[in-house]
Amino acid sequence: MLSQAAIKKIEEVQKKYPTKRSAVLPSLFIAQEEQGWVTKEAMAEIAKVLAIPPTQVYESATFYTMYNKKPVGKYHVQVCANLSCSLLGAEHVINYISKKLNIKTGETSSDKKFTLSTVECLGSCDTAPMLQLNDEYHENLTEEKIDKLLDSLD
C-alpha cells in the first residue's frame, strides 16, 4: 500500500498538467521512491488516484527502464557500458565490482544490500568510466575509487 503522503504527492503532481494521465510517470517515481520498486498493487493504486484505467499505468511502467519491476538492493550500482565508457575500461569496472560484491550483473546480493546493473549512456562521457549509485553519479572511476565508494556504504 502506498502511504497517505505518497498519495498526497501524486494528487499534487497532477496540477502540473492539463490531463491526469500525464501524471503517470511522476507518480511511478513517487511509488518507487517509497517502495524501492514498482509493484502491480502500486500501479493499481496510482490508476485509482488518477482515475484512469490500470492498463495505462502498467503500459508505461513496463516501457521505461528506470522503473524497477522487481526489488533492487539498498544500493543500486548502475555502470555505463556504452561506447565512450567502454573505450576507457567500463568492462574492467563491471568485472571488478562484480567480483568485489560477488554478484553478476542483473543480480542482487543475498543481504539485499547491492544490485549491479549495466546501463546505456548516462551523458557523462568526458568523465568515463562512470557509474550511478542510486541518485548520484560517480565519475573517472579507478579501482581505488570504487573500493572507497563501496566500502563506505553501510
Binding site: L25, P26, F29, F63, M66
Partner: peptide, 27 residues
Amino acid sequence: IYVHRGAGAYICGEETALIDSIEGKRG
C-alpha cells in the same frame, strides 16, 4: 514552466515520442 522527468528511454529524444511521454504514455 514545469520540469517533467523521463524514465530511461532514448527514443523520447525524438520530438513526438517526447510529447507522448509528457502525456504519460509509452514514448
